[in-house]
Amino acid sequence: MQQKHLPLTKLRRSLNGDSLDVREKEELKDFVNLLDNVCSCFAPHERLTSARYLLIDCVCRKYELEE
Rank of each mutant, 00 (worst) to 15 (best):
C60I: 08
N37K: 13
L55P: 01
E27Y: 10
R52T: 08
K62M: 05
R61W: 07
A51Q: 08
V59W: 03
C60Q: 07
K62D: 04
S40W: 07
N37C: 11
G17A: 12
G17H: 06
L15G: 02
P44L: 09
L15R: 04
D21H: 04
M1R: 09
T49H: 12
D18K: 11
E24G: 08
K62G: 00
V22A: 13
V32E: 00
C41V: 11
K29E: 12
L15V: 05
L55I: 02
R23H: 11
N33C: 07
L65P: 01
E66T: 11
F42D: 10
K25C: 05
R47S: 09
E24Q: 09
S50D: 08
D18N: 14
N33Y: 05
L55A: 01
S14D: 01
Q2F: 09
L65W: 01
D30A: 14
K4E: 15
E67D: 08
P7C: 06
R52K: 15
L65V: 05
L20D: 04
C60D: 05
S19Q: 12
L54H: 14
D21Y: 03
C39I: 04
P7D: 03
L34R: 14
E64V: 07
K10F: 04
C41M: 06
T49F: 11
K10Q: 14
I56H: 00
E26F: 04
A51W: 00
C41R: 09
R23A: 14
L15T: 04
T9W: 01
K62Y: 10
Y63W: 06
F31S: 07
K62P: 03
R61A: 12
C41P: 00
L34K: 14
E46Q: 14
R12T: 08
E27S: 11
K25G: 03
L20E: 04
V38E: 02
C60L: 06
D36T: 14
R13H: 10
V38G: 01
L20K: 15
R47C: 09
C60F: 06
L6C: 07
V32L: 03
P7R: 04
D21K: 03
D36M: 06
N33S: 10
H45L: 10
R47G: 01
V38D: 01
L8M: 15
E64P: 00
C41S: 12
P7E: 03
L11H: 03
L8T: 07
I56E: 02
V59Q: 03
E27C: 05
H5N: 12
K4V: 13
V59L: 06
L6E: 10
R13M: 10
L6Y: 10
F42K: 14
S14C: 12
Q2K: 13
V38C: 02
